[in-house]
Design a protein around this nucleic acid. Structure first.
Length: 889
RNA sequence: GGGCGGAUAGCUCAGCCGGGAGAGCGUCGGCCUUACAAGCCGAAGGUCACAGGUUCGAUCCCUGUUCCGCCUACCA
């Protein structure tokens, strides 16, 4: 008996805590940077410090952990670089909400104290998501954990800003940007979420100064008319060809504004008249530049109307819309208003309606950077998997617009630009200059704005490794091996890392980008930090264990399809973990030590068979992981463990283990069992790290952590298992025979407790000796008290029949069952076989098929026909016998 | 407006290069067979959305249609 035994049911909680601590204490997650050889590296998509682990994180990090643990087992020096993101707007919002609860706000505190508050918040709560990642089993190299506001990373940010500025790739200017009146900051185009909204389209008449007639314009935002500085028509528009008036009167404001002609105006839309509001519409802004029109900003940064809006000043923008419409109606200038569905932009952080607003911001000139990012993927330096995402990537980069990087918030990297109080010179530098480089003035004020959070994230693959220093870490691990990410941040993050990595490192940041699906909520909505529709994975872990949860995620991580998580599914895989546990428990009741694997010739058929199947599982699961087909790998291992090892192998060797055969047979099976359990644990470890580590330590002959194990076939210690197709084929015949008997038992309603006799008629001489040699095995697994092998195809009287390719099985049932059932059963089988045969025969009658199909396909179909014909013939013979001899009772 | 993805068993979904439709859960029947009832044995259940086309052969490739989802977009 074994020295170690396992409890009857697997209890994950205690096991998980124990082994995670063990791994950390023993430095098993640590990357070796002294190695000269390139390592395998993944940088984590840094979760927001404000983040709480959601399903998306769980999936994302489980996949990364599977890759990292797998590569370690395959002998790679693995770096999984962890860290968190300072998440400017999100974090500022969280802390501001906290301040609001305390009855204060950031303006009362002032910038410095507010930032201190954020750091304090981060100290207290910022580690939550890291602790959650640890519960998920993430094998990150935690000693290297980084934060995007760390001194080192801030240094990298300043360096990049200064370099890009000097290279003319960062500039400052007045442009229309997306403004969030709630967060009171500019947003990048990407940070605006468009949502189809039912609004109204208002047709407003702008009268000519003479009083008669006018031009009708259409707008969805009538309040912006207060800031109109022109009305535009298309120069080719016949309707305005003979127009004499050069201006119109802007209603409500009674301001005279010019009529201009611009090809941008769509003649087909409405009356062909376009109101021009340069301060609040990006197109109008462009038109205004072409025609040298002034801008009037009527909506302020707080979303209220400005002084320029005259008597509407101080009104909220939406109230103002109501008032403007009302007054236009009263003045008889509102010609009509109709329902209109259009896309309205919302802030991706707070969901407030975004206002296009004229303002002075900093921009990155994106096109030159984008070109390199496009080329790198086109040339295959970086692969995007699945590759259909490449098209999306190209499309965005090819149409990229300059990136607005300044944010009017306080939490983030303050822009390293200083304005001279004397001459107004703007100095961009790594550190605050002592004096103005132009006039020597010492009073300089730093730019108030901070950088877009994604600016620092874009540097993550090299800033975390010590750039701009030329570190050994960079030398060993840059470019990283793969980036694992959801497609929702393909543009936000991946494309920008490509641009920055190529520009500053002259090399792509990663060889592969594996884009996984999103975990959506039950309404098909994306789960996101800000929407608040997250389901807590930790609950699932608490209830069912991390391993069950991870295996579920992996099993559903099919490429290109969203993952819908349900607790029911986790329960299914929890059962799998328990199955594995109990299989190990059974094995460890018998295994007392490691035994060398005997030569294949010496082994029993089940032994040879399971080793052949193991060899296949090794190859197939490895191939699947290499191709990022996590669900395939999980599926292969699940089926191998449950349906081959447990359902067949363990059952097959029970007699040997229980000493019913000779001691040598027992030893041989124990050697095989040891090897199967040993290798299976290693194969499963990347998916279910905790339970495999636990069992590993109970398995005699293992040393240290399973994390240090060698992947099956990789090491000199244990040679790769050779394939063994003949064992697979032979065992297949036995499985068929056993299943055939079981089916008869099941369908005829014979209780499993009742031992039966069976007669087998093998189809060939080989099958005959195979079956004779494994009479005991068949009898055990099919619960027979006797098994006879006959050379005669004659059906014994009063028996049920099962016809397989290798053999025909008869189960005499005299007095046990009534033969109506057997007749029905065989009749059904006959019909089914007949139909199959008909379809195959039809194919073979087709001359085109015979002439054009590949020879091997034709041969295969002919074999099928042969097989089916024989089967049909046997079934018919049996049916005939039932009808003549076993006449209905 | 442009683009992408999906439609396969009651449910949730696999199905790589076109060559006899799969899993899990659920359902039905039978089992406390000394690893596991979180289990074991067996069964039923599908016009692979629809219409064409290519092919000897289509769930798979092409075209179109319908429905669903997503991404993207400066027509007011």
């Amino acid at each position: 008996m074994s020295s170690e035994t396992l409890e009857k049911g697997y209890e994950p909680q205690e096991v998980e805590r124990r082994w995670y601590a063990f791994w950390e204490e023993n430095g098993l997650f640590a990357a070796r940077e002294e190695d000269g050889a390139p390592g395998y590296a993944i940088v984590i998509p840094p979760p927001n410090v404000t983040g709480v682990l959601h399903m998306g994180h769980a999936l994302n990090n489980t996949l990364q952990d599977i890759l990292c643990r797998y590569r370690r087992l395959r002998g790679d020096n693995v770096l999984w670089m962890p860290g968190t993101d300072h998440a400017g707007i999100a974090t500022q919002n969280v802390v501001e909400r906290k301040l609001a609860q305390e009855g204060t706000d950031r303006h009362a505190l002032g910038r410095e104290r507010f930032i201190a508050e954020v750091w304090a918040w981060r100290e207290k709560f910022g580690g939550a998501i890291i602790r959650q990642l640890k519960r998920l089993g993430a094998s990150c190299d935690w000693a290297r954990e980084r934060f995007t506001m760390d001194e080192g990373l801030s240094r990298a940010v300043r360096q990049v800003f200064v370099d890009l500025y000097r290279q003319g790739l960062i500039y400052r200017g007045f442009y229309i940007i997306n403004w969030c009146p709630r967060c009171r900051t500019a947003l990048a185009d990407l940070e605006v979420e468009h949502e189809e909204t039912d609004g109204r389209l208002y047709h407003i008449r702008y009268p000519f100064p003479g009083g008669k007639g006018g031009i009708t314009v259409a707008t969805t935002r009538p309040e912006t008319m207060l800031g109109d500085t022109a009305v535009a028509v298309n120069p080719d528009d016949e309707r305005y060809r003979g127009l004499t008036a050069a201006a119109v009167i802007l209603p409500l404001m009674q301001r005279e504004i010019p009529i201009i002609r611009d090809a941008y105006v769509d003649m087909g839309f409405g009356t062909g008249g376009l109101k021009v509001t340069p301060a609040h519409d990006p197109n109008d802004f462009e038109i205004a530049r072409r025609h040298d029109l002034p801008s009037v900003k009527v909506i302020g940064d707080d979303g209220r109307m400005t002084e320029a809006a005259g008597r509407f000043a101080g009104l909220d923008r939406f109230e103002c819309r109501v008032r403007v419409v009302q007054e236009l109606t009263e003045a008889g200038l509102l010609e009509k208003s109709e329902p209109h569905r259009h896309a309205v932009g919302h802030c991706y952080r707070c969901k407030a309606a975004v206002e296009p607003n004229l303002s002075r911001q900093w921009f990155v000139r994106a096109r030159p950077l984008a070109e390199k990012a496009i080329a790198a993927v086109k040339q295959g330096e970086t692969r995007i998997i699945p590759e259909n995402w490449a098209a999306t990537y190209f499309d965005w980069l090819e149409n990229i617009r300059d990136w607005c990087i300044s944010r009017q918030i306080w939490w983030g990297h303050q822009i390293p630009a200083w304005t001279c109080a004397g001459c107004g010179e703007v100095a961009v530098a790594l550190e605050a200059p002592a004096a103005c480089p132009r006039c020597g003035e010492t009073r300089l004020t730093q730019e108030e704005d901070v950088l877009d959070t994604w600016f620092s994230s874009a540097l993550w693959p090299f800033s975390t490794m010590g750039w701009p220093e030329e570190t050994r870490l960079l030398k060993t691990f840059y470019p990283t091996s793969v980036l694992v990410t959801g497609f929702d941040i393909l543009f936000f993050w991946v494309a920008r890392m490509m641009m920055m990595g190529l520009h500053f490192m002259q090399a792509v940041p990663f060889r592969d980008v594996y884009v996984h699906a999103l975990v959506r909520d039950e309404d098909g909505q994306k789960m996101s930090k800000s929407k608040g529709n997250v389901i807590d994975p930790i609950d699932i872990i608490d209830r069912h264990g991390t391993d069950a949860f991870r295996f579920t995620l992996a099993a559903f991580a099919a490429q290109g399809r969203d993952v819908k998580m349900s607790e029911k599914r986790v329960e299914g895989y929890r059962n799998f973990i328990n199955k594995l546990w109990n299989a190990a428990r059974f094995a460890l009741m018998h295994i007392d030590r490691r035994r060398e694997l005997p030569a294949p010739r010496a082994l029993s058929l089940p032994d040879r068979w399971i080793l052949a199947r193991l060899s296949r599982a090794v190859a197939e699961s490895a191939r699947a992981i290499d191709a990022y087909r996590f669900n395939d790998a999980a599926g292969v291992l699940y089926a191998f463990v449950w349906h081959e090892v447990c359902d067949w192998y363990l059952e097959a060797i029970k007699p040997a283990l229980h000493g019913k055969l000779d001691a040598a047979a027992r030893d041989r099976s124990l050697a095989v069992l040891w090897r199967v359990l040993h290798d299976t644990l290693i194969l499963l470890h990347p998916f279910v790290p905790f339970v495999t580590e636990e069992i590993w330590h109970k398995l005699p002959g293992t040393q240290g952590s399973i994390m240090r194990a060698v992947f099956p076939g990789d090491g000199a210690a244990a040679a790769a298992l050779p394939p063994d197709p003949s064992a697979e084929a032979d065992m297949g015949v036995l499985i068929d025979v056993i299943s055939g008997i079981r089916t008869i038992r099941g369908e005829m309603g014979i209780p499993p407790g009742m031992a039966l006799e069976a007669v087998v008629h093998p189809a060939t001489a080989e099958a005959r000796s195979l079956i004779e040699d494994h009479r005991e095995l068949i009898a055990n697994l099919a619960r027979l008290r006797a098994l006879a092998v006959t050379g005669s195809p004659e059906r014994p009287r009063a028996s049920a029949t099962a016809v397989m390719p290798g053999a025909t099985v008869f189960v005499p049932l005299e007095g046990i069952i009534d033969f109506k059932r057997e007749r029905e059963r065989l009749g059904k089988e006959f019909t089914r076989t007949e139909a199959e045969l008909a379809s195959v025969a039809k194919k073979l009658q087709n001359q085109d098929f015979l002439a054009k199909a590949p020879a091997e396909v034709v041969a295969k179909v002919k074999d099928q026909q042969q097989e089916l014909a024989e089967k049909l013939q046997k079934i018919r013979a049996n049916l005939d016998k039932i009808n003549t001899y076993d006449s209905p009772s």
